[in-house]
Design a protein around this nucleic acid. Structure first.
Lengths: 369, 369
DNA sequence: TTGTACGCGTTATCAT
DNA sequence: ATGATAACGCGTACAA
């Protein structure tokens, strides 16, 4: 009877129940604290009978371990951080779910941190807040402009993995996807549909992923031996090009007629293009092939389905956690992980035969040359 | 020199840097540990000179507090949990950001937990996982079917706030929005546009929020003295009604012609309706008024802008945190919070005069009776 | 296989 | 205003 009666620190009206500790279990089971600890941590060197007895008593007393005490003792918090970009975006949910699920499967919790929008606040977060966080590692979705090196988390010992980064930040392991190859594939599919005047729109070289997708477009043209036509490329600083710009792209006659296909760098842009196409009397999938990138569920409803490239955000989230834990457990290695995109063929790229073979579109505006 | 040299528990190649503690600071500053603690915790009863000295030394030594030790001692983790529904949904990002921001402003961290899809796993989560979590409270977005009472988190002492719940779970404080009033308002706006044959679609009575929106539709009809016409209501079990169902709704002639407006219970449904409308040659905002609910940014691009009801998910997230902390600090009160929706007028409900006055649509299919 | 003894870093209590 | 001391709950040497 070494334990004194502790008063409840919660609100007065709450019953004065004090926490069950391993000491309580030890006393009730007639063993010592370390033995209880060994049982609870699934360690082998315990007699089966003792084990059963302890587990029984623990369940009976409703024992709940104290995360704080464990963290203090072990130095690990059993938690990961997830750094989110300042601007919310629907796809982030998938990242959050992927990271959380993989973490949960490995008995880890996930803390989320939306980054402030202002640069100074970002710096403060990285230098002041980050090191104090009760996390063992960090999965970071950073704006391309933000630099963060390992040393930025000096004393917490936290390790870091960058999400969707292509080696922009030297020394930081990252998880990426096949932005470039994904667009290359989609161009190939359009070519199989008989498209020859394939346009591209979206993003600028500032955005690393947009640049990669643009290069995939160039790859695709090259694969098919198609010429590069500047008027068929619309790259804009805005998230989504203006209606006027899109209209100009869709009606650019040089050199051999208007585009018979438009590859958008992400689904929202494809949505906008589809809208303008409707205005022009062009129905995506019938008169014009149209593709997106990301495979956002929100746009699935349009055009009887938008053909797009699935970006595996959820799987990338999972991969980030695996990579991070690998680093935490075995130290930093050559690291990095690539999760492949895949083509999702729906209706907006044109008709298909019963066996899935792409068929040509029947564009009323098409000038066969 | 009471401190012994502690070896680094990290990887061998890491430099053997040991953590700076308040004991180190105390020694270097020539004061005692409690004094350092007082300074670091901004408590008043410290001499200015001492304070400056301690702060100086702490900065110099790069002191970082140990969250585990603090949690052990205080019994508070400085973290909140955010329970997410099994199915990801774009709007959840706003909730996550709202909760995180408000929490960060109050020096709290946020842990996210997507709920498993299977009922048994949900039960296990509530009974087994939840009590062990290093959190002080929980904001819960639960499927309507899931029950969770205060006692479900017995030993962690965590308190709980339900998100977007309308008192379904007795005893649990909640944050809600004005689903019903929001739709009532939008119907009123359509009436101002001259619409008289207003249809409604989306959801069933199973979904509490969908039911509330349906009732708002009925309120709106009643306000305007318009009759309830069963053929103008399409409520479906699916997330989004089928194209066939929507087509039937849009072409229902009884008793006085097809609908001149469609109120969708959420934006995705409005998107689908808009798509079918286009197929029928009806352009939203010109030939047919169309409204949504939620104000998802993804659909903003369509129809030159979808008139909709903004659901303040971010603000609701913030309110949840405020309510939860209120409960943590001062005990449970009469609680609950309501964050109002507001109407977002764009183009899909019809034209407006320069001063914003709603103008009537010119529907070619309209039979004035 | 099990028990003894101690320390992790912090804050609360009390005394000065 | 400050210091000595103890305690939070757990894990881990080391001894038995």
């Amino acid at each position: 009877m070494t334990r004194t009666w502790r008063k409840d620190t919660a609100h007065p009206e709450a019953p004065p129940r004090s926490r069950t500790t391993i000491a309580d279990i030890a006393e009730a089971a007639g063993v010592s604290k370390p033995t209880v600890s060994r049982v609870l941590n699934q360690r082998g060197d315990v007699a089966p009978a003792t084990r059963r007895k302890v587990e029984e008593v623990a369940a009976e007393l409703g024992y709940v371990p104290s995360p704080g005490a464990r963290a203090l003792r072990t130095g690990r918090h059993g938690a990961l951080g997830l750094l989110l970009p300042p601007e919310p975006w629907g796809g982030l949910v998938d990242v959050v779910y992927g990271v959380s699920e993989e973490a949960a499967a490995r008995q880890m919790n996930v803390m989320v941190f939306p980054l402030p929008a202002e640069r100074e606040a970002q710096r403060r977060f990285a230098t002041t807040t980050l090191p104090h966080l009760p996390i063992d590692g960090l999965v970071a979705l950073m704006p391309d402009g933000m630099l963060l090196h390992r040393g930025a988390i000096p004393l917490s010992g936290a390790r870091i993995v960058a999400f969707d980064d292509r080696g922009i930040r030297p020394g930081i392991p990252y998880v990426e996807t096949t932005n470039r190859e994904g667009v290359r594939d989609v161009v190939g599919h359009l070519v199989a549909h008989g498209c020859r005047r394939i346009a591209f729109t979206g993003g600028t070289a500032e955005l690393a992923f947009a640049q990669a997708r643009y290069e995939g477009y160039l790859d695709g043209l090259r694969d098919a031996g198609l010429p590069y036509v500047p008027d068929r490329v619309l790259r804009s600083d805005d998230d989504v090009p203006s209606e006027v710009e899109i209209r100009r792209l869709l009606t650019a006659e040089e050199p051999d007629g208007p585009p018979d296909a438009v590859v958008a760098a992400w689904d929202e842009i494809a949505t906008a293009v589809g809208h303008v196409a409707y205005e022009l009397g062009l129905r995506p999938g019938r008169d014009l092939a149209l593709t997106g990138f990301d495979d956002r569920p929100e746009v699935e409803l349009m055009f009887n389905g938008l053909t797009t490239v699935h970006q595996p955000l959820r799987e990338m989230g999972q991969a980030s956690v695996r990579l991070l834990l690998e680093i935490l457990d075995h130290g930093p290695g050559p690291g990095n992980a690539t999760v492949p995109t895949h083509l999702v063929v729906r209706e907006s790229c044109g008709p298909h035969a019963a066996d899935g073979t792409p068929l040509p579109l029947k564009s009323p505006l098409q000038n066969e040359s």
